[in-house]
């Protein structure tokens, strides 16, 4: 019985903790498939979290907060697209700069609005039905999967991005521009426009992940993305640049975070400092275990110069 509760609880926690990774990784896959490395996911996550918290705080409506997080994330992604696609700057450095900007700007905003490094408590998104306090592990799991609007949204987006990548003209064009931009150009399609699309899509998706970060703990705090954007990047690589593969990798990272929290609560004889590094260690292990088996998009990280043909 106890084990069953532990298992249900673990599954519930895994799903809740995987959501930001999954949404960021879906975005990362869209951007990277189009040939643009997107380390800026970290900055987009924190921007989404801040905007969702700030707007919810101001309006009292978590729905408006969620709705406003998306354009904010897209704006941050646009900075990255402007630097890397339009000006062909180095994608990794641009991503780092965008992250510094987003981390700084959200800290700045938190100081202005709340005068401290975290927000006041905010209202959560309402669930489809209320959970009975007496409910057992299985009911909590079902409630998380079926009644949390953002879990449902994430599930829908997994399917949508999967369909977009594999089954639509736009998805195939995005993939083509990441493999061979020159060929796409000769077809008369705009390479910059496609790449902008991929990067902006990553902004929209990852910002939702950020909003969930804030809603799940009912507040924003400085730097609350805590490397999750970078881990999502690793998940994209681990998932071989496919939406479903990346999702599975994110569930793995979510599970490791859930395990970490459980071990810390369970007071196991391992140091809490070291348990906290579990997702980060797992990320490195995942990256190492993979070399030679995954093939990145051929033009990933390579700016496209029309004249150099």
């Amino acid at each position: 019985m106890l084990e069953a509760i532990f298992a249900f609880g673990m599954l519930t926690a895994t799903i809740r903790l995987s959501i930001p990774y999954i949404l960021a990784a879906l975005g990362g896959a869209s951007s990277e498939r189009a040939g643009v490395v997107n380390i800026a996911l970290e900055g987009i996550l924190v921007t989404g979290a801040f905007t969702a918290a700030a707007v919810t705080y101001a309006t009292g409506s978590p729905w408006i907060g969620l709705f406003c997080a998306v354009p904010a994330g897209i704006a941050v992604a646009a900075l990255h697209a402007l630097a890397t696609v339009t000006f062909r700057a180095d994608q990794i450095i641009s991503g780092l700069a965008v992250n510094l900007f987003a981390l700084g700007a959200t800290k700045f905003g938190a100081k202005l609005i709340w005068g401290k490094p975290h927000s006041e408590n905010i209202t959560k998104l309402p669930t489809v039905w209320k959970l009975d306090h007496e409910a057992g592990g299985a009911a909590t799991l079902a409630h998380t999967v079926l009644a949390e609007p953002m879990v449902l949204l994430a599930a829908a987006l997994i399917v949508a991005v999967w369909l977009l990548h594999g089954r639509t003209v736009l998805g195939l064009r995005l993939q083509a521009v990441g493999e061979n931009a020159h060929a796409v150009d000769t077809l008369g399609l705009s390479v910059p426009r496609l790449r902008w699309t991929g990067v902006l899509a990553s902004g929209a998706l990852a910002s939702l992940g950020g909003a969930w970060l804030a809603f799940d703990v009912t507040q924003f705090s400085n730097g609350m993305s805590a490397g999750k954007g970078y881990i999502a990047m690793a998940a994209v690589v681990f998932g071989k640049w496919r939406p479903l593969g990346a999702t599975l990798a994110c569930l793995l990272f979510g599970a490791s975070e859930a395990l970490q929290q459980r071990l810390q609560v369970a007071n196991v004889k391992v140091s809490s400092e070291l348990i906290g590094t579990l997702p980060y260690v797992l990320t490195i292990v995942a990256l190492v275990g993979l070399v030679g088996r995954a093939r990145p998009p051929a033009a990933l990280g390579v700016p496209y110069e029309k004249s150099s043909a």
């Binding site: 630097a83 000006f87 700069a97 700084g104 700045f108």
Partner: peptide
């Protein structure tokens, strides 16, 4: 708020990247 300096630093990098290109 002195966090504005973090923002300034990030903007310097972005302008440098674009400027160098």
């Amino acid at each position: 708020p002195n966090e504005i300096i973090d923002i300034l630093q990030a903007i310097v990098i972005l302008f440098l990247l674009v400027g160098a290109r």
